[in-house]
């Protein structure tokens, strides 16, 4: 007896799972930046380039998920 059937690519589920880690990571980066700025407002300009570097490095993990979702089709 067939109860349920799922169509489409498993990559969609895989990408959903792959996006969890980078999501948490990007959240931590901006949380740390907000906290640092709240504690030391004058440091906000100093730390901003590092925020974007950290954001970019973590965001890449989610983007790898998109790219490999198409690669492993």
């Amino acid at each position: 007896m067939l109860l349920a059937e799922v169509n489409g690519s498993l990559s969609a589920i895989g990408y959903g799972l792959a996006a969890i880690g980078p999501g948490i990571g990007v959240g931590l980066v901006f949380a740390a930046y907000i906290q640092a700025t709240a504690r030391q407002p004058e440091s906000s300009k100093l730390t901003l380039p590092y925020v974007w570097i950290g954001f970019a490095l973590i965001e890449l993990l989610a983007l790898l998920g998109i790219a490999f979702g198409f690669v492993f089709k």
Binding site: A56, L57, E59, L60, L63, L64, I66, A67
Partner: peptide, 13 residues
């Protein structure tokens, strides 16, 4: 590799 892939995947996605 990551430099290229980051820009590519952002524009692609």
């Amino acid at each position: 590799f990551t430099l290229a892939l980051r820009l590519f995947a952002n524009m692609f996605a």
